[in-house]
Write a protein that binds this DNA or RNA. Structure first.
Length: 491
RNA sequence: GCCCCCAUCGUCUAGCCAGGCCUAGGACGUCGGCCUUUCAAGCCGGUAACGCGGGUUCGAAUCCCGCUGGGGGCACCA
C-alpha cells in the first residue's frame, strides 16, 4: 500500500513565524522528505482581524531562509489551490450547508453577548461552561422569527449527540480517548459566514488530500471535534501526529507575544539556518544516542515520526549558541566567503557599512573576520568583538579602569606610537617586534604592555590577538588611537 | 474548575515498548586544569537525574495503581 504522503504546514499570518512554528514546520518537512511525499504550505488567515499580507510574506521568506521548500503553497500554486483560506470561503460555505443537511450541524442565533452572559453565569456558580443548547432544536418558525429580527446565525456542530467516546489514533501519542460529555457543540462558522479554524482545517485537509496531519500538541484537544465533522461528512480523516509543545525558559509555551521568539530575530542576529535545523532536530527527537551533529541528508534519512518524544521541550538557547559556533567554525574553514557575507550584512544593519559594498570593503571585512576567527559564534559577534574595526573606540569602563590607570601608561603608549610611526607599514611581525622590544627595554613583562595597548586600540579586554588586530587596523589608526588614549588618560 | 497530555542531570536527551547488560550513557551549561598577550576555540578532568508512595517480580528507571508536579486545551483565536 504505497500511499502518497501529503503533508502540510498550516501557518497563520498573525505575526512573524516563531521558533515553535519553524520547528513544527521543519518536522513536517522532514516527514514529507523522508517519505518522498508532497509538502504543502497553507495559509490559515480566517482570522481577518489579525492576519496580514505582510506577515504571510515574512513567514514564507523565513521558511525559505531556513532551507525548507514546498511543492504546493500560496506562492507556488498547485493542483489543490487556492492555498489561502480566505480565498476558499465558498468551499466552507458549501460544506457547512452539507453538514447541516446531514444533521451534523445547526444554525445558532445566540449573539456573542448572550453567550457571554451564559458563560459568566456558569463561572459564578463555578460550573464548567457549556452552551445552553438553546438553538439545538429550533423549529422552522422560530428560525424565521430570529431571521426576521435581523439575526444572522452562526453554525454549530452537533457534538453532544455523539453517544460514545471518541478515540484519536495519534502517531506519536498512541490512542487518546475523549468522552463526549466533556465536549460541546462548537461554533464552526461565524455569523458573518467566515469559518473557524477547526472547520476550515477539516475541509482543507480533506480537499487537499492531506494524508498526515502533523501539528502541535495544543491541537490534540481539538482533534475529537474535528473527527466528529469528518464522520458527519462521510470523510476519512488523515492520520494525526501531535508534536510536543516547545516551552520557553519560563516553562511556558513559546508565543509571539513573548518577543525574541521570532525566527527572524535569530536570522538578524546572524544564526545559521543549518545550525538551527540541526538544533531543531534535537528537540523532541534524537536521531542517534551519542551524536549531536547531522547533515540534512542524514536527518531526512533517519527521521521517524514514531520516535518523537511526548513531553514538552524547553528551548535551550545556550545549546543553540554552541551549535551555531560549531557550524560557524566549519563554515570559516570551508566557505569563509559566507561568513564574510554574513558579517557584511550585520555591519550594514548597524550602519557600519554602506548599502553598496565595494570589493575593498569586502576585502577589509574578510581580514577582520580572519582576525576574529572562532570568536564568531553568531554573526553579531563581529560587533561584540570587532566593532572598533569599523568605528571609533567605545571604551569599556572596566577595561579602562584595569589597564589604563597606571600613571606610566600614557608615556608607554606614546613611546610605542612613535616607534610604529617611524617604521614603514605595520605587519603583524612588525607590530609584535615593536611591542615586545619596548617591553623588554623597559624591563617589563610583555603582557604588561599588551593589555593597555589592546584597551587603547579596541576599548575591550577581549578580542583577537593584539598583533593581528594592529595589522588589520593599520599603522595610521594604531598610532592615532595610541596617542588619543595617552592624551585622555593623562587627565 | 473541567478535559487531555507529560514526568531520567539546570537544559536537550539515550535507556522504557520486548524488566537484569544501568554502581543510568551522550551533549549543552557549569566548575577546575592545560594551552595562552586577553577573550574565544581546543584538550583533560569534575559536577549533576530515574519526582514521591504503594504494588507485581528472584530482580523495576523500565510493568500496574495512586499522589504530586509540569504543560496544553476548554472562544463567533489559530
Amino acid at each position: 500500500m504505497a500511499v502518497t504522503v501529503r503533508t502540510r504546514y498550516a501557518g497563520s499570518p498573525t505575526g512573524y513565524l516563531h521558533i515553535g512554528g519553524a520547528w513544527n514546520c521543519f518536522f513536517v518537512w522532514l516527514f514529507a522528505r523522508h517519505h518522498a511525499g508532497v509538502m504543502v504550505i497553507r495559509i490559515e488567515d480566517t482570522d481577518r482581524a489579525r492576519s496580514t499580507q505582510e506577515y504571510e510574506q515574512t513567514i514564507l521568506e523565513d521558511l525559505r531562509w531556513l532551507g525548507l521548500d514546498w511543492e504546493e503553497g500560496p506562492d507556488v500554486g498547485g493542483p489543490f489551490g487556492p492555498y489561502r483560506q480566505t480565498e476558499r470561503f465558498d468551499l466552507y460555505g458549501r460544506y457547512a450547508r452539507e453538514l447541516i443537511e446531514r444533521g451534523g450541524a445547526y444554525p445558532c442565533y445566540c449573539t456573542p453577548g448572550e453567550l457571554e452572559t451564559e458563560r459568566r453565569r456558569a463561572q459564578q456558580r463555578r460550573l464548567p461552561y457549556r452552551y445552553s443548547g438553546r438553538c439545538r432544536e429550533l423549529l422552522p418558525a422560530e428560525r424565521a422569527a430570529s431571521e426576521a429580527e435581523g439575526r444572522r446565525p452562526a453554525i454549530r456542530v452537533r457534538i453532544r449527540d455523539v453517544g460514545r467516546s471518541i478515540v484519536v489514533e495519534d502517531l506519536v501519542r498512541g490512542q487518546v480517548e475523549f468522552s463526549p460529555e466533556h465536549l460541546d457543540d462548537y461554533i464552526i462558522v461565524r455569523s458573518d459566514g467566515s469559518p473557524l479554524y477547526n472547520f476550515a482545517n477539516v475541509v482543507d485537509d480533506h480537499l487537499m488530500e492531506i494524508s498526515h496531519s502533523i501539528r502541535g500538541a495544543e491541537h490534540l484537544s481539538n482533534t475529537p471535534k474535528q473527527l466528529v465533522m469528518y464522520e458527519a461528512l462521510g470523510w476519512t480523516p488523515p492520520l494525526f501526529a501531535h508534536l510536543p509543545v516547545i516551552l520557553g525558559t519560563d516553562r511556558k509555551k513559546l508565543s509571539k507575544r513573548l518577543g525574541d521568539t521570532a525566527l527572524r530575530d535569530y536570522r538578524r542576529q546572524g544564526y545559521l539556518p543549518e545550525a538551527l535545523r540541526n538544533f531543531f532536530a534535537l528537540m523532541g527527537w534524537y536521531p542517534e544516542e551519542d551524536r549531536e551533529m547531522y547533515t540534512l541528508e542524514e536527518l531526512i534519512a533517519k527521521f521517524r515520526i514514531e520516535e518523537i518524544g511526548r513531553s514538552p521541550a524547553v528551548f535551550d538557547l545556550s545549546k543553540l549558541n554552541w551549535m551555531n559556533g560549531v557550524y560557524m567554525r566549519q563554515m570559516m574553514e570551508r566557505d569563509s566567503y559566507r561568513v564574510v557575507d554574513l558579517a557584511v550584512s550585520i555591519l550594514q544593519q548597524h550602519g557600519l557599512l554602506p548599502e553598496e559594498v565595494t570589493e575593498a570593503h569586502r576585502t577589509y571585512v574578510a581580514r577582520v573576520v580572519e582576525a576574529l576567527g572562532d570568536r564568531i559564534k553568531v554573526g553579531e559577534d563581529v560587533l561584540t568583538y570587532g566593532d572598533f574595526f569599523f568605528r571609533d573606540v567605545a571604551f569599556d569602563p572596566a577595561a579602562v579602569e584595569r589597564y589604563l590607570r597606571d600613571p606610566q601608561v600614557p608615556a608607554l603608549l606614546t613611546a610605542l606610537a612613535e616607534r610604529i610611526e617611524s617604521g614603514d607599514g605595520l605587519s603583524r611581525q612588525a607590530a609584535e617586534e615593536a611591542v615586545r622590544r619596548l617591553a623588554e627595554e623597559r624591563g617589563m613583562h610583555s603582557r604588561e604592555l599588551i593589555h593597555p595597548v589592546r584597551v587603547a586600540l579596541s576599548g575591550k579586554t577581549a578580542g583577537p590577538g593584539l598583533f593581528e588586530l594592529m595589522e588589520v587596523l593599520g599603522r595610521e589608526r594604531v598610532v592615532g588611537r595610541l596617542r588619543a588614549a595617552a592624551a585622555s588618560t593623562v587627565v
